[in-house]
Amino acid sequence: MTLLQMKDVSMRFGDVQALKKVSLDVSRGEFVALVGPNGSGKTTLLRAMHGLLRHGGTRELGADAGRQAMVFQRPFVMRLSVRNNLRLALWLAGVPRDQWDERNAAALQRVALQGLEQRPARALSGGQQQRLALARAWAVQPALLFLDEPTASLDPTAKREVEALLAGFAADGMTLVMSTHNLGQAKRLASRVVYLEDGEIHADLPTAQFFNGRLQGRAQQFLKGEMAWTIE
């Protein structure tokens, strides 16, 4: 079932054509990784998919697309306690107040932050703040979760923790779309990989096919390490 359809999406920032007639569908239960070199359009496409940017072309949501959430590379946390950061997200999402405590507790347990409810969110480590951002997103039970390089600023331990959470979300049936520079991460987590360059999609394949030599041209160069990327 299609949750999101982008058709002929174009976007320009001044003299830069960030996206060029990009068409992309996302179906329920997929974990889509957007990869490509710097400036390829990954983040722009991700934000357009979430409805944060005006663009040419069309963006259509399926009947079951429902609520959406997005987690950024550097999570923004309010000058509030961990608990109240979560409560604010639930309020903004229109979740009934009588569900807040239950969802709050479940979300903190899911990301292993239980016991830190009263701690100022900005006193958390970088990895803990990213897990809090994931808890806020998970708590509102989104049909679509967008992630913009969610582990790029984290140390290896925190990165593994976040990857484990994302793998768990996907296993539970959540639909995720993630931009990443880390091809190893895309290979570990995604069910499908979309390669962008210069604002265009050059490959869109199931993960196994993407990494098993079925690419051509510059997409193959990228995969072989002849262009800038990170793999771990």
Rank of each mutant, 00 (worst) to 15 (best):
L3D: 01
L4Q: 06
K7T: 12
K7L: 03
D8N: 14
V9R: 01
R12A: 15
F13E: 11
A18G: 01
A18Y: 10
L19W: 12
L19I: 12
L19T: 10
K20M: 09
K20G: 08
K21R: 13
K21C: 10
V22W: 06
V26L: 00
R28I: 01
E30Q: 04
F31L: 07
F31G: 06
V32S: 08
L34G: 02
V35N: 10
G36P: 09
P37F: 11
G39S: 03
S40T: 11
T44N: 07
L46I: 05
R47W: 08
R47K: 11
R47T: 10
H50K: 11
G51H: 04
R54E: 15
E60S: 13
L61D: 13
D64L: 04
A65L: 02
G66Q: 11
Q68C: 13
Q73H: 03
Q73T: 05
V77A: 11
L80K: 02
L80F: 15
S81M: 08
N84D: 15
N85A: 10
R87A: 03
L88G: 04
A93R: 08
G94Q: 11
V95Y: 06
V95T: 09
P96E: 13
R97L: 07
D98I: 01
D98N: 14
E102K: 15
E102M: 09
A105K: 12
A106H: 03
Q109M: 10
Q114C: 02
G115Q: 07
Q118E: 15
R119A: 15
A121Y: 01
S125N: 13
G126L: 08
Q129H: 06
Q130R: 12
L134P: 04
W138C: 04
A139F: 08
A139H: 03
Q141V: 12
Q141T: 04
P142S: 10
P142Q: 01
A143Y: 05
L144D: 01
F146G: 09
L147C: 01
D148H: 10
E149Q: 00
E149W: 01
A152R: 00
L154G: 08
T157N: 13
A158V: 00
A158P: 05
E161Q: 15
V162D: 06
A164S: 15
L165G: 04
L166I: 05
M174E: 12
T175Y: 07
T175H: 08
M178E: 04
S179M: 14
N182L: 06
A190P: 00
R192I: 09
E197G: 00
D198C: 13
G199T: 09
G199M: 04
E200G: 08
H202T: 11
D204Y: 10
L205Q: 09
P206G: 02
P206A: 05
T207A: 08
T207S: 14
A208I: 00
A208T: 07
Q209E: 14
F210L: 02
F211M: 07
G213Y: 05
R214N: 10
R214L: 06
Q216R: 15
Q221H: 12
F222M: 04
L223R: 01
E226P: 04
A228M: 12
W229V: 12
T230W: 14
E232C: 10
